[in-house]
Amino acid sequence: MHIDPAKVDAIIQRHGRKREHLIAMLLECQEEFTHLPEPVLQRVSEQVEVPLPSVLGIATFFRAFSLKPVGRYPAHICMGTACHVKGAPRLLEAFERELKILRGQTTDDLLFSINTVNCLGCCGLAPAVTVGKDVHGKLKQADVPRILKKYRPKEA
């Protein structure tokens, strides 16, 4: 994947190259490139003057970051307590069965990836899932194919 260093620089500039804003910069980079490839981390390290291992440390410590490409519509299954008691583990399995990938993986067409989050804060909608930026709540396993269909390209 081609990384435009100017885009990374623009993000770093916006945050005044401050170390305190390292997490915010990486979050924006991740939004821009869907993940954090090595050239991005390298560039951030040089520009903010923080050793690469420290940048890599941040990028692997926090759950929001991914070093591998993620799908265009990442599915985040909420694993909060309310969702757990209402069947989130079985819902996760339903997503895994439907997309034929496991948690942490991405489909070959780069359309979907599956991951878990600790709590979306939509406990009233348990069990809840986000796909892309949409929240889907009160799900049953049987709803999964219908939800994913919405994000699949329309067949000609």
Partner: peptide, 23 residues
């Protein structure tokens, strides 16, 4: 300042380290 998904960052010393852009 944004967190990036780490439960331990609710702990005061961890939160402040994270505010400084550290682990």
């Amino acid at each position: 300042r944004e967190g990036a998904g780490a439960f331990v960052c609710g702990e005061s010393t961890a939160l402040m380290a994270s505010l400084e852009g550290k682990l």
